[in-house]
Design a protein around this nucleic acid. Structure first.
Length: 860
RNA sequence: GCCUGGGUGGUGGAAUGGUAGACACUCGGGACUUAAAAUCCCGUGCCAGAAAUGGCGUGCGGGUUCAAGUCCCGCCCCAGGUACCA
């Protein structure tokens, strides 16, 4: 505490308590006021507590919420906890403490820290993804996916991390110079085939692209999502393989270049490789496959800058001209995209060109470049020509443009049953299971084939049954009825996953083995004539599951009958503003959109898109300009700042650092300016060292502001209002500083002017604003007061400043009565001394007058 | 490589095509004080000058315009994302 007058550590807790106890910021269902739903990305309550990055976005949303409330909106601004996750489970493995208990402690620490910053949330609407009453509905959504045939089980080669004892998704893998590592812990990882649940997000790919045009998001984020989904239109073409029954399917976006296909390339893992490779090439090909297996995708990409590959000795037949072309393998072709095989057209694809050059394969130009392409002296291409153009070397299609040729070729192919139009996506289905304890259990029971046939179809997926092998026995998946939800996590002795990669739940024997009622789906411990024996699914859901739909539950957090009440849903709809980091631009936002579309199909929600407006707050870097991290030792702890300067100063400073969306370094020295600003505000209202009001503040309204001060006041109302609306808090604060600097120089200040100032700063510095508001004699809180509105007449001026320029350079200015004529302005300019000095001995070529703004004399 | 952002004083950053550097930090000088803190006043882009003022200045090179940090073309650098997507 540096100042005995403005005692923030005394007043801040008082107001925090007041807002909490009075539910000042609680939303009211079905209120007549217009609704406004503002959402923050909810945090993972880690053991480390709050990081300075959290309060940046959270302060912005808290300020915006207070602003909107003052403007007369019924504001919903909730907070919750994304509390399933690996660190808590790791901690449990280490200490044996139940993740439930650790989570509870972490949450209460987070809550305390958020409250200290003056962040207010509707406490009746807190959600916690690990609460069975919450995850009941996460499981319910999964049952809907299951029944619609949008979930399946697949044996997938996925990243396995022996140190963490779990499977990791691609997005949890870091590519380091030492090879692939786990994002958490930086442990080495390897590929292993494991039974996994997968969701068919690809079925929604087109709708997820289309929906992007209906949302107000940063363009860069929309593009990122569209690119991630990666829709490409083209054709599937099938090539016969010489001497084999099988044919080779490829996907191409350029069917018009089919005549230029001079060889084929298969991914080394392609199932046909071992079959078609000739004796002479077998040994080398097998060695190459082995080498590929140990490479990560990134190594494959990186090392293959210089392309590698081998001939299999086999030949394919081009369906349009029956040309015999060799089949190669190379790791630049990925099994996971398209069909895992390509037709190579080196003349018109850069990668193929490079490969053909390296292995001296034929390059046949089939698109006329009209002399645009780089060629060597012999007239051969120096690089691939990848644009469209008229065809050449293509029999009857010569001269036809690329577009028409694509259609013609696909038509020819489909007549021969050798090809068709095809759409491909980069997006892959969503790997939805983890071999962990601390996640939502799947409401699934596995039964034998015989027993499966006895079970009510209600518990089975639409379409194909879901089957998996357990110890060489085929099992069928059935889903639990809604009444059986939530399926709670059982208590277990050890949280350590078994070394075979199975979840720790596989050791919870009593929980594991159940009897499933074939009619009702009810689970019982004892067998009856209506039950069949089954085994529960031991995988749990990924952390994304709970965070995919939490924004809906805030609206109706305690409903045990429904995920969300339809009336409440139609009142609150979806968030009007979503603030969160750009690091979630793809995965979280895409998964949540997928589920929201699904819920829309199910009639649970009334709109297809969940987040109308999205804002990405930036990142606060350490004082050294680097990302804050423990290892760098540049982490700023918000609690220390609050102790030294108070929450209001921290809030203002976080917002003053720069634009909300920017990445900006923290600078502890700079906070002094904000601290001075608030002390100055305090002194404006309260007399030094006393609790009484500063006599400068005229409470009987006998003084009036002079017109210049009044104009500044209303300009400030206007600018601050507009800046808050666009989340431009940094410039709003500097405008408030200008006004305060001005007011503090006046001898007398009308009380209502001070009050307006307090209202304008209240969203950002709510504690001091409440305190001074009360001391000015108000019985109600400033949080409930209506937002001030600028009076247009007060903004008007009687005179206008005209800038003088000579050859575009500033040479002086003058105040003139409004709307001076061109003649008046010009003569004022010409009679200015500095202007005259510039005109000395020169000739005026042109006289520009921009009304009420500027005179520019062009001279020579 | 590709896709996004972005390059403005010693620092963070302001600027609907119209006075570049608002607002702060830092630093320097002064007032108040026994002293310090707090507070207040003055200065603070660079160069020349006692000052008035003048010249130069928004990554670099061109262009459009009476006027460009802002618009157009070409480069350089930095940060983030992505990884051969056929």
């Amino acid at each position: 505490m540096q100042n005995s007058e403005y005692n923030f550590s005394k007043i801040e807790p008082i107001w925090q308590k007041y807002w909490a106890e009075n539910g000042t910021f609680n939303a009211i269902d079905f209120d007549k006021r217009p609704k406004f739903y503002i959402l923050d990305m909810f945090p993972y309550p880690s053991g480390a507590g709050l990081h300075i990055g959290h309060p940046e976005g959270y302060t912005a949303s808290d300020a915006y919420k207070r602003f909107k409330k003052s403007q007369g909106y019924n504001v919903l601004h909730p907070m919750g906890w994304d509390a399933f996750g690996l660190p808590t489970e790791q901690y449990a493995i280490k200490t044996g403490r139940h993740p439930k208990d650790t989570t509870k402690e972490n949450i209460s620490r987070f809550k305390e820290q958020l409250e200290q910053i003056g962040l207010c949330y509707d406490s009746n609407r807190e959600v916690n993804t690990t609460d069975p009453n919450y995850y009941k509905w996460t499981q319910w959504i999964f049952t809907q996916l299951f029944k619609k045939g949008l979930a399946y089980v697949d044996e997938k080669p996925v990243w396995f991390c022996p140190d963490l004892g779990t499977v990791l998704a691609n997005e949890e893998i870091l590519n380091t110079p030492e090879g692939p590592r786990s994002e958490r812990g930086n442990f080495p990882v390897e590929r292993r085939p494991i039974r996994q649940w997968v969701l068919r997000i690809t079925q929604y790919a087109d709708r997820l692209i289309a929906g992007l045009k209906d949302v107000n998001w940063p363009d860069s984020t929309k593009r990122l999502q569209a690119n991630w989904i990666g829709r490409s239109e083209g054709a599937k073409v099938s090539f016969e393989i010489e001497d084999y029954e099988e044919s080779l399917e490829v996907f191409t976006t350029r069917p018009d270049t089919l005549y230029g296909a001079t060889y084929m390339v298969l991914a080394p893992e392609h199932p046909l490789v071992s079959k078609i490779t000739t004796e002479a090439h077998k040994e080398a090909v097998e060695a190459y496959i082995e080498k590929t297996k140990v490479k990560s995708d990134l190594e494959r990409a990186e090392l293959s800058k210089d392309k590698t590959g081998l001939n299999t000795g086999a030949f394919a037949i081009n369906p349009v001209n029956n040309k015999r072309i060799p089949i190669w393998i190379s790791d630049y072709v990925l099994l996971s995209y398209g069909t895992g095989a390509i037709m190579s057209v080196p003349a018109h694809d850069e990668r193929d060109f490079e490969f053909a050059k390296k292995f001296d394969l034929e390059i046949l130009q089939v698109i006329d470049d009209a002399n645009q392409a780089h060629k060597n002296a012999d007239g051969n291409l120096n690089s691939a020509f990848t644009e469209a153009g008229p065809l050449m070397n293509s029999d009857t299609l010569n001269g036809m443009d690329s577009d028409s040729a694509q259609k013609a070729i696909i038509e020819t192919l489909s007549a021969k049953n050798a090809g068709s139009v095809e759409v491909n996506y980069k997006l892959r289905d969503w790997l939805f299971s983890r071999q962990r304890y601390w996640g939502e259990p799947f409401p699934i029971v596995w039964v034998s084939q015989d027993n499966y046939s006895k079970i009510n179809t209600e518990f089975k997926p639409k379409g194909e049954p879901i089957i998996a092998n357990f110890n060489d026995e085929v099992q069928y998946a059935v889903v639990l009825p809604e009444e059986a939800l939530p399926l709670k996590l059982p208590d277990i002795e050890s949280y350590t996953p078994s070394p075979d990669g199975q979840s720790p739940l596989s050791n919870a024997h009593e929980w594991l083995h159940v009897h499933f009622d074939i009619q009702t789906g009810a689970i019982s411990e004892q067998a009856t004539e209506n039950t069949v024996p089954g085994t529960r699914e031991t995988n749990t859901m990924p952390q994304w599951a709970g965070s995919c739909w939490y924004y809906l539950r805030y609206v109706d957090p305690t409903n045990s009958e429904k995920l969300i009440d339809p009336d409440l849903e139609s009142y609150w709809k979806t968030p009007d503003l979503y603030i969160g980091g750009a690091e979630h631009a793809v995965l979280h936002l895409l998964y949540a959109r997928f589920w929201h579309h699904l819920l829309h199909d199910l009639g649970v929600v009334s709109e297809a898109e969940p987040f109308k407006k999205l804002f990405h707050q930036g990142i606060i870097l350490g004082e050294d300009g680097e990302k804050m991290s423990k290892s760098r030792g540049n982490v700023v702890n918000p609690e220390i700042i609050i102790d030294a300067y108070g929450a209001d100063t921290l809030r203002l400073y976080l917002m003053f650092l720069g634009p909300l969306e920017a990445m900006k370094p923290w600078n502890t020295k700079g906070i002094e300016g904000i601290a001075r600003f608030l002390r100055k505000l305090w002194r404006l209202v309260i007399l030094d060292n006393e609790t009484e009001l500063n006599p400068k503040v005229d409470s009987d309204q006998s003084t009036k502001l002079d017109s210049e001060s009044e104009r500044l006041l209303h300009q400030t109302i206007e600018k601050v209002t507009a800046d808050y609306e666009s989340l431009g808090f940094n410039t709003a604060i500097s405008q408030l500083m200008i006004l305060l600097n001005h007011l503090s120089k006046l001898d007398k200040i009308p009380k209502d002017t001070v009050e307006i100032f307090l209202q304008l700063i209240a969203p950002l510095a709510p504690h001091i604003a409440e305190e001074l508001w009360m001391r000015l004699g108000h019985t109600g809180v400033i949080s409930e007061a209506a937002w001030p509105v600028a009076i247009q007449e007060k903004l008007a001026t009687a005179s206008v400043k005209i800038i003088f320029q000579v050859n575009g350079k500033y040479r002086g200015d003058i105040m003139l009565p409004n709307n001076p004529s061109k003649e008046e302005a010009l003569s004022a300019a010409k009679s200015n001394e500095r202007v005259q000095a510039q005109l000395e001995g020169k000739q005026i070529l042109k006289e520009i007058y921009v009304p009420n703004k500027i005179v520019n004399l062009v001279v020579q």
